[in-house]
Amino acid sequence: MWNWLHQLASPPCFNRFVAMLLPWLAAAWLTTFMIGLWWSLVKAPADYQQGEGYRIIFIHVPAAWLSLFIYVVMASVAAIGLVWKFKLAPVFTAASAPLGAAFTALTLVTGSVWGKPMWGTWWVWDARLTSELILLFLYLGYIALQNTISDVRSRNQAGAILLIVGVVNIPIIHYSVEWWNTLHQPASIMKFDSPSVHPQMLYPLLLMAISFKLFYGTALLLAMQCILWQRQRGGNEYA
């Protein structure tokens, strides 16, 4: 298993792997996204309280999940890369960071658009919104660090440690819902006993979440390939 992973980490092997996987991943993303979009925007019924406006959750919630997910994945990959010295681990985190930052920004923008009609304000400094903003700055800090350290090896390892320290903030983000009893709703999907989102709305939401994750996978592979090509051309960017 380790051998196979180490082999995969060599660029030619990785390129073959990407060429094999990419079409399927992209097709899966497009299919789920199209179905999910139709399901959530057309087929799913309007909410009893929020009317049609609630439909923004089909973008907002998957983006919020993904923004957290990417950071945790980056930190895990960074930790693994630090211990077992995978060559691709720094490429993975470097390619993920802008994607994560973009989805965090998307979460903030859609949340704000949703907040105006629903709560009566564009922005509330409650724990969850603030945590999402902190997450954005964590991403930006990592990206800035990557851009300032010139030595490749120290850049990779210092970035990995920063990610691991930053991931300690992720539980704070996740449990902030319970810490602060705010006007932002409690996380209603994460309760496994009886989801209080009606199935007619829950299924398209979950489908959109899967679609977003597939998009992340597709974009990640492309971005990693770009970084590897840049490196081959002698730019020696990243890794």
Binding site: T130, F137, L138, L140, A144, T148, I149, N169
Partner: peptide
């Protein structure tokens, strides 16, 4: 690093 603002970007989010 020459840029002293980098430290604030790295650490201030963690101090919140």
């Amino acid at each position: 690093q020459k840029n002293h603002l980098l430290a604030t970007l790295l650490v201030l989010p963690l101090t919140i």
